[in-house]
Design a protein around this nucleic acid. Structure first.
Length: 353
DNA sequence: CAGCCGTGGAT
DNA sequence: TATCCAAGGCT
C-alpha cells in the first residue's frame, strides 16, 4: 500500500474552519466555534461523547438533557445508584456504556478529585474511554491538538484521497492522513468541524458536494463517485433466533428480573425468558418460571446488531420469588426489546415514555 | 483481533 | 422487507 499524494493541509484547514464558523450546528453539549475550552465543561463533553458512540444526535440528545438535569456534575453521577443510571440509559442501547459510564465517573471522583484528567493519555485509562473519546475530550474540553478520528472523519478523509483500501484495514492509514491535518491553534473546533462536515455534508449517501467547502480539493468528487467511499468489506448475514418471554401479573404489576452484568443487555431489567436459540420453540420445549395458567398473548420481532430475534409472549397471574415488581404502566426502565415484548403481551402499542 | 454489543431512522 | 448505519469500546 502506498501513501496517496498529500493534499495541501493549509488550504483544507482554512476552508473547513471558515465553513464551521458559519455553519456549526447548535447541539445541547456544544460550545460555539471560537470559544475553545473557555466554556466547555469536560463532564458534559465526556458524557455527550459516550452517548454519541454509535448513536445518532437526535437519539442521544434527550438522554443528555435528562442526565445533566439529574446529575449536573461528575460527582453527582458518581454518587448515583446503579439501578437509577441503568434505568435512565434504558432505550439508548449498548448498555456496557452505562456500566462503564458509572465506573468512569466514580474513578474521576475518587482518583482524580472530581476533576477530569486533561491529557489524552490519562483519559485513555478511564473505563469506556477509547482512542476516539480520549482524543475528542482532550481536543474539545482541553484544547489539546489530538487527532480525533471517528466514522465521519474516516469517511471525509477516504473521499478526499479517494482511498481504495476497504475498511477496516484502512483505518490506520486514514488515521495517519487525518493526523496530517490537525491544527494546534483550534483543536476542538477542528475536530468538530470535520465531524460536522461528515454528518451534514459529506454524508454516507447523497453527499452534498455542491455546498462542500472541500469540493475543489476532493479526489473522490473529481473521480465522480464520492458516495462509494469509504469502501467496506461485506458483512455476514444476520442469524435468526427465537425465544419465549413471560409476563407474570400480580394486580397491576408485573415481575421483572435483573440481568447479569456481562453480556447482552447486561445489568438491565428484563422479563423472565427462555434462552434465545436458533430453533423455534414448541410448547413442549418451554419450561415457564412458575406453574400457572399461561396464555400466549403477544409476539414481536426485534433486530440486534448481530442477530434478529422473534419473541413469543406468555402471560399468567402468579407470584415469582425475588422478582422486581413493577407497575405495568411504568416500564420505561426496560431495554427496548423487553418494553416491546411487554407491551405486546399487555395489548399495548409500542412506544417509549 | 474479530466478534460482541442496541436502537431507531432513512432509503 | 432488507440493508445500512450513527461522534466506538471491550475482550
Amino acid at each position: 500500500m502506498s501513501l496517496p499524494a498529500l493534499l495541501d493541509p493549509g488550504l483544507i484547514r482554512s476552508r473547513l474552519l471558515r465553513w464551521y464558523d458559519a455553519h456549526a450546528r447548535t447541539l445541547a453539549w456544544r460550545v460555539g466555534p471560537g470559544q475553545g475550552a473557555l466554556r466547555a465543561d469536560p463532564y458534559r463533553v465526556w458524557l455527550s461523547e459516550v452517548m454519541l458512540q454509535q448513536t445518532t444526535v437526535p437519539h442521544a440528545t434527550p438522554y443528555f438533557l435528562r442526565f445533566t438535569q439529574a446529575w449536573p456534575r461528575v460527582e453527582d453521577l458518581a454518587a448515583a445508584a446503579d439501578g437509577d443510571v441503568m434505568a435512565a440509559w434504558a432505550g439508548l442501547g449498548y448498555y456496557a456504556r452505562a456500566r462503564n459510564l458509572l465506573a468512569c465517573a466514580r474513578a474521576v471522583a475518587s482518583q482524580h478529585g472530581g476533576v477530569f484528567p486533561d491529557t489524552e493519555e490519562a483519559l485513555l485509562q478511564l473505563p469506556g474511554v477509547g482512542a476516539y473519546t480520549a482524543a475528542a475530550v482532550a481536543a474539545i474540553a482541553f484544547d489539546r491538538a489530538a487527532n480525533v478520528v471517528d466514522g465521519n472523519v474516516e469517511r471525509v478523509i477516504s473521499r478526499l484521497y479517494a482511498l481504495k483500501d476497504p475498511l477496516p484495514e484502512a483505518k490506520p492509514l486514514l488515521k495517519a492522513l487525518a493526523a496530517g491535518l490537525v491544527r494546534a491553534d483550534r483543536p476542538g473546533d477542528w475536530a468538530q468541524a470535520l465531524m460536522d462536515l461528515g454528518a451534514t455534508v459529506c454524508r454516507p449517501k447523497q453527499p452534498l458536494c455542491l455546498i462542500c467547502p472541500l469540493a475543489e480539493v476532493c479526489t473522490a468528487k473529481a473521480e465522480g463517485e464520492p458516495q462509494t467511499y469509504p469502501r467496506k468489506l461485506k458483512k455476514l448475514a444476520r442469524p435468526k433466533r427465537y425465544g419465549v418471554v413471560f409476563i407474570i401479573r400480580r394486580g397491576s404489576q408485573i415481575a421483572l428480573v435483573r440481568r447479569p452484568d456481562k453480556g447482552l443487555l447486561g445489568g438491565m431489567l428484563a422479563l423472565p425468558s427462555t434462552d434465545w436459540r436458533s430453533a423455534p420453540w414448541t410448547d413442549a420445549d418451554v419450561t415457564p418460571p412458575i406453574a400457572a395458567d399461561w396464555v400466549k398473548a403477544g409476539q414481536i420481532e426485534h433486530i440486534f446488531t448481530h442477530f434478529s430475534l422473534s419473541l413469543t409472549v406468555w402471560v399468567a397471574e402468579g407470584q415469582l420469588p425475588d422478582a422486581i415488581w413493577t407497575p405495568s404502566r411504568d416500564l420505561g426502565s426496560l431495554p427496548s426489546v423487553f418494553l416491546k415484548a411487554a407491551q405486546s403481551g399487555l395489548g399495548l402499542n409500542y412506544r417509549r415514555g
